[in-house]
C-alpha cells in the first residue's frame, strides 16, 4: 500500500487528496474503535468476572480470559438469592405499569388532541406542571400515603403511583394531532363513536409512538431503584434492582463471580429489547429530547 501511496502523491494532487481522505478514514476508525473499547471495558470485565472461579478472581494480576470457565456461576446465582422471585416481581410490575400507563396516556392524549372542553388550557397546564415536581420532592409524603393505605410490601405500591405520565400524554397527543380531522368526521358520519374511533382507527395509525412510549415505561420501571427500595421490606417483594443491592454475602467476602453473573442477568433483558427494537429506541430517545415541551 505504501508504494502505491507514494506513487500516487507524485502523480497528481487529486489522488493525493484521495489518499489523504483514506488515511483520515483509517485514523477515524482507529480513534473511534479505541474509544468504543474504553466504553466497553466495564461490560467486558463484568462478563469475564462472571465466568471466573472465586480463586481466580482474587489473584493478581487479573486475567482477561478465565483459565477455568465457571458457567456454573449462572446456575449458582439462582440459589444464592431468590432471583426467580425477583425476576417475576420486576416483570409483573413493569408490565402492569406499561399497560396501565399507556392506557391512561392514550385517553388523556386523545382528549387533549381531539376534544374541545371547558378548562382545556388549565388542564393542560396542570398536566404540564407535574413534570416540574420531581419524585424526590414527593418521596416522603408518597411513602406516608403508602403506609396509611397499608400498601407497603404490596404490588399496588410498586404499580399505582406510575399509572400516569405527563410526558407520555404530550407525546401521544402530538402524534394524534397528525391524524387528519377529515378521518374523524367521516367516521362520525358512518356512526362510529368516539371511543371506537380511538381504538380502531387512531391507535393503529399511531403505532410507532405507542411502541416507543411502551418501551420507555417498561424500561424506566424495570430499572427503577429508589421507590422499590423504600416500599418493599420483605425479601419476596423485592425487585431485581433491589435484590442485586443485597447480594453481598458473608463468609470469604463478596462472591464477585456470582455478583457479576447477577448483574449480567439484571441488565440483559433491557439490552436484548434494545437490540431488537434499536431504531424505535434511538429515534424516540432523540425525539423526546427535542420535540417535547
Amino acid at each position: 500500500m505504501n508504494n502505491t501511496t507514494i506513487r500516487s502523491i507524485h502523480r497528481s494532487r487529486h489522488s493525493w487528496a484521495r489518499t489523504r481522505k483514506t488515511l483520515l478514514d483509517i485514523l477515524w476508525y482507529v480513534v473511534v474503535t479505541f474509544l468504543a473499547l474504553c466504553v466497553m471495558v466495564p461490560f467486558i470485565w463484568m462478563i469475564v468476572t462472571s465466568l471466573k472461579g472465586q480463586n481466580e478472581i482474587f489473584t493478581y494480576p487479573p486475567t482477561w480470559i478465565p483459565q477455568d470457565w465457571q458457567w456454573k456461576n449462572y446456575v449458582d446465582v439462582w440459589q444464592e438469592a431468590p432471583f426467580g422471585r425477583y425476576f417475576l416481581n420486576s416483570t409483573f410490575v413493569a408490565l402492569m405499569v406499561t399497560v396501565g400507563q399507556l392506557t391512561s396516556c392514550i385517553l388523556a392524549g386523545f382528549a387533549f388532541a381531539r376534544m374541545e372542553f371547558k378548562g382545556k388550557n388549565f388542564m393542560f397546564l396542570l398536566f404540564l406542571s407535574t413534570t416540574m415536581i420531581s419524585s424526590q420532592v414527593t418521596l416522603v409524603p408518597s411513602y406516608l400515603i403508602m403506609r396509611s393505605l397499608n400498601w407497603i410490601d404490596h404490588y399496588q405500591a410498586l404499580i399505582v403511583p406510575f399509572l400516569a405520565n405527563a410526558f407520555g400524554v404530550f407525546m401521544i397527543r402530538q402524534s394524534f394531532r397528525s391524524v387528519p380531522r377529515e378521518m374523524e368526521e367521516a367516521a362520525k358520519l358512518d356512526g362510529c363513536g368516539r371511543l371506537r374511533f380511538l381504538v380502531q382507527i387512531m391507535l393503529p395509525l399511531c403505532k410507532p409512538i405507542l411502541a416507543s412510549q411502551a418501551l420507555f415505561a417498561f424500561m424506566g420501571n424495570w430499572n427503577s431503584y429508589l421507590w422499590p427500595l423504600i416500599v418493599t421490606n420483605q425479601d419476596d417483594m423485592r425487585t431485581l434492582q433491589i435484590g442485586l443491592r443485597y447480594f453481598v454475602s458473608g463468609e470469604g467476602g463478596t462472591k464477585w463471580g456470582l455478583y457479576m453473573a447477577a448483574a449480567v442477568l439484571v441488565s440483559l433483558p433491557v439490552i436484548i429489547i434494545y437490540f431488537l427494537v434499536q431504531k424505535t429506541f434511538v429515534e424516540s430517545m432523540a425525539s423526546t429530547g427535542l420535540k417535547d415541551i
Binding site: 466504553v39 466497553m40 466495564p42 431503584y225 434492582q241 448483574a263 434499536q278
Partner: peptide, 22 residues
Amino acid sequence: FRTTFFLPTITSMAAVSVVWLW
C-alpha cells in the same frame, strides 16, 4: 459504534454501579 456508546445509558444504574464497585 453508536450502539456501543449508547449501551451504558440503557443498562440499569444498579447493575452498572455494582460493576463499577468491582
